[in-house]
Design a protein around this nucleic acid. Structure first.
Lengths: 356, 356
DNA sequence: ACCAAGATGCAAAACGGTTTGCTTTGCGCA
DNA sequence: TGCGCAAAGCAAACCGTTTTGCATCTTGGT
């Protein structure tokens, strides 16, 4: 059996040496070198059956020496589990989704899963199709999906979720998919507090720069704000800085009067502040501005942005936990959706309206 | 053979129906249903050998009907290619790395590769080890690595790169790994321009809030700035808003006199501006502040931040292209590192120093 | 000394595809 | 009529593990 070992070594090193990565060792080769069967090597690694201390030691030392690592693909084929989950986000480069991604990644890591990122480019159907196929080909065992727009009932997501695939919705629920577990923030409560806060400062005329129309979070936030400002003008943006700027620009042009701007996220709030600044309106002296999310720079810009803090990291973590737990359980049954609390953060961008 | 088909169908539907995902179809079953061998089905799909139009049609329709999708794991096992690449970043939730990730994702998508994200939590060795193992287990075919601190010569990365694995360094080169292809920005030129710009405004006393000490980009940026301000005080931060704030806080406490702050990234610049604001110093009237990167909100905060624009998206794209091209070529040989141009962006945060 | 029960370890059968070598058939052309 | 070659398809090997089902070897209890 020692001969076997040498044989392998010779074969190996006599191959032409080029710059390509050398062929990895197989369990077969380790077994031959140790003079045992692959079964024994496998059991040594998995511990599913006892292996004598002596043999195990020999095998382990050989493994270390060779630098052997079992092939993930073979393992996956046999076990049927890829050890990977997917995260589909509209755009991974957004702070917002980046936070979710990080939370997911942390939790996946904890459960010893890998994470495959799927940027859907704001729900480009072709992209989405590709990523749902990861589920079908069993490249990933489950998917965390964050919607960026209202999904029509004909969508890929619908059909795949109907097949009872392990899916969790993060950050945004999708109508028609009420049975799919989700992790969201308590948008309505946050918006209500925000509205109340501004109302109590004495404001009467407000505008709402909302997010994508039809998106559940947008609907909830607008509704929450309207509890305090029933007749607030609502315009829709796309959550980007520029649209905050543009919407306020249009409102000013239309001659709409307001002393408070509710932006449905901090980025649009920043854009709004910029436009107001350019119009010679001071924040918060002339106009109060609030956002939503509490992004990293919300507290350090001048003035500090009054907003509602969402724990995106936790949304990511909880989504992943939901998914991974249900994978471990082997069923999505009994998985409860989660709604996370939010927190009003009052900073310098809100103040009583001008006396006039 | 039609009987075979029915047999399969019966077997399938007689299984207990629960909420778990139904077992996927195998090529075996499709073949049986079509009355051909698996070989023929495989060839129909791959086109590596001709299949008669009639047979192909029958097979294809069956595939559609069943919703058959070939198992990625089996495919990978036989072909040895996983169709995945990895991206290791210190923290995916940072705007900066998010941009890189998006660029990588775009390119990977173009080349029909999947992307596995590896958050290294600022080079936590255990995390890194896990991710390098993805390479070893052949879960990923190649890795794009963005360093966040100076890597010691004993690190995992060193050993793995020595084994000629397909690795590309993005955004940051690593000393000792000069032979590994990389994609970086022309930091020195950007910093030089920045320094010259501030110098030409008339400033004489400047401080530099640098990034991690020892990081190549930090060294280059500091050197570039020092061409115009040879005696600038240098303090080191960690690229976060808070450290920009803290370092300036310390400088003020130490009584260091300066009329310009060079921050090595925009986040620290924002933190610096915040601290200056709290100290009653106006930007840019009393102190000019510049950053580096040109993050999304650099142009919309007040005052706008003078900075150097790096194209992170392009860094991601180019890194991915380098990696994927070399995977296609089967060798890392002849792969050229890339250095991307940067652009000085002058905004409102810089102005001549106060007259006094 | 004898037997049941663990401890060990092996051979072989999956897992679900891809690929190779070989057979059979159909067809054009001398 | 016969020959050669391309087209079409099958069986079987293979990829590198995990997981049975069995054999063999100890060991302790009686």
């Amino acid at each position: 059996m020692i001969t076997d070992c040498k044989t392998f070594c010779v074969v190996r090193y006599s191959e032409p040496v080029d710059d390509a990565a050398p062929k990895p060792w197989t369990m077969q080769q380790i077994a031959a070198a140790a003079g045992v069967s692959v079964t024994t090597v496998s059991h040594t690694l998995s511990g599913k059956r006892p292996v004598s201390t002596q043999t195990a030691l020999r095998i382990r030392s050989l493994i270390d020496q060779f630098g052997y690592v079992p092939d993930a693909g073979a393992r996956r084929l046999k076990s049927g589990r890829s050890g990977m989950i997917g995260l589909a986000v509209p755009d991974i480069s957004h702070w917002y989704f980046g936070r979710i991604a990080r939370g997911v990644e942390e939790m996946a890591n904890e459960y010893d899963y890998g994470l495959i990122i799927c940027s859907t480019s704001n729900s480009d159907p072709r992209r989405e199709k590709r990523y749902f196929n990861l589920l079908r080909t069993r490249s990933i065992e489950g998917l965390i999906y964050t919607a960026s727009r209202e999904i029509g009932p004909t969508d890929e997501l619908m059909s795949i979720s109907a097949s009872a695939s392990p899916i969790v919705l993060a950050d945004e629920v999708v109508s028609g998919l009420e049975r799919v577990p989700s992790v969201t923030s308590l948008n309505s409560a946050g918006a209500r507090e925000l509205g109340r806060h501004v109302r109590e400062l004495g404001h009467r005329r407000a505008v709402i720069v909302a997010g994508f129309e039809g998106l559940r979070s947008t609907i909830e936030r607008v509704a929450g704000i309207r509890e305090s400002f029933p007749d607030a003008v609502v315009v829709y943006g796309d959550f980007e800085v520029q649209s905050g700027y543009d919407r306020v620009d249009e409102l000013l042009a239309r001659g709409v009067e307001f002393t408070a701007v509710f932006a449905c996220n901090d980025y649009m709030a920043v854009g709004a502040m910029r436009r107001l600044h350019e119009a010679g309106l001071r924040v918060p002296d002339d106009v109060s501005v609030v956002g939503f999310d509490d992004i990293d720079i919300a507290g350090v810009i001048t003035p500090g942005l009054t907003t509602v803090r969402q724990d995106m990291l936790e949304i990511g973590r909880r989504s992943a936990r939901l998914l991974l737990e249900s994978l471990a359980a082997g069923t999505m049954r009994g998985i409860e959706s989660v709604t996370l609390p939010v927190e009003l953060v009052v900073r310098g961008s809100t103040a009583p309206p001008p006396a006039s």
